[in-house]
Computed example of a mutant assay.
Amino acid sequence: MKKYEYFDVTADIGFKAYGNDLNEAFENAGLAIFNIISDTSNVDSSIAKSFEITSEDEVSLLYDYLEELLFYHEVDFMLFCDFNVEIKRIDDAFNLKAKINGESINWNKHERKTEIKAITFHMMDVKKTSHYELQAIVDL
């Protein structure tokens, strides 16, 4: 199974991320986001960051997760290439614990692709069939 794929949206980029379980699909969504910004194969996983979020449903959790990734990218000037996600349902909410690895941005080393301005709720979706499929659009 492929990890993710992109689709065209006017003035934006959409992606679908896949996984055998919800954790893997979220991890691949992180990879999809950072491959829009740069080539993650050139990013070392030398610095680790951890965070935890709780949201009322899976779609909100996806939005909050992607927003958190973008926050660390913009505030800490980092690119990430390795994502470890653990999602649990607690009562009527979803809790996500993430450990992300990457390195500080060095545009002499890292390819500069596209800047992501924001994550949008437009067309955001979480589907489960034989696997999980996440869909999101980022504003460029």
Rank of each mutant, 00 (worst) to 15 (best):
Q135R: 15
K109I: 15
F121A: 07
R89Y: 02
I37D: 03
E52A: 02
N20I: 05
F7Q: 11
I90A: 05
L140Q: 08
E133W: 01
F15P: 01
D125P: 00
S130H: 11
K113H: 13
N42A: 08
N42T: 13
F94T: 03
V75H: 04
C81M: 06
N108S: 12
D76F: 07
V85T: 13
A11H: 12
S55K: 15
D39Q: 09
D44L: 08
F94R: 10
E67G: 02
N23E: 10
L70T: 09
N101G: 04
A98Q: 07
T54Q: 15
N95Q: 13
G19D: 00
I47D: 07
M1P: 06
I36L: 10
N23Y: 05
A29E: 00
I37N: 08
V85K: 08
Q135H: 04
C81W: 09
D57S: 12
D82K: 15
F51S: 11
E133R: 01
L134R: 06
F83T: 10
F83I: 09
A118T: 05
L62H: 10
K128Q: 14
I90T: 13
K97M: 08
N20P: 00
F71K: 12
L96I: 08
E111W: 04
K2M: 12
M123W: 02
A98L: 06
E103D: 11
M124E: 09
N84P: 01
V138C: 04
V75I: 15
G19K: 01
F77M: 10
T129K: 15
G30E: 05
R89D: 00
A11R: 09
H73T: 10
I116K: 11
Y72A: 02
I87Y: 05
S46V: 12
V43L: 06
Y132A: 05
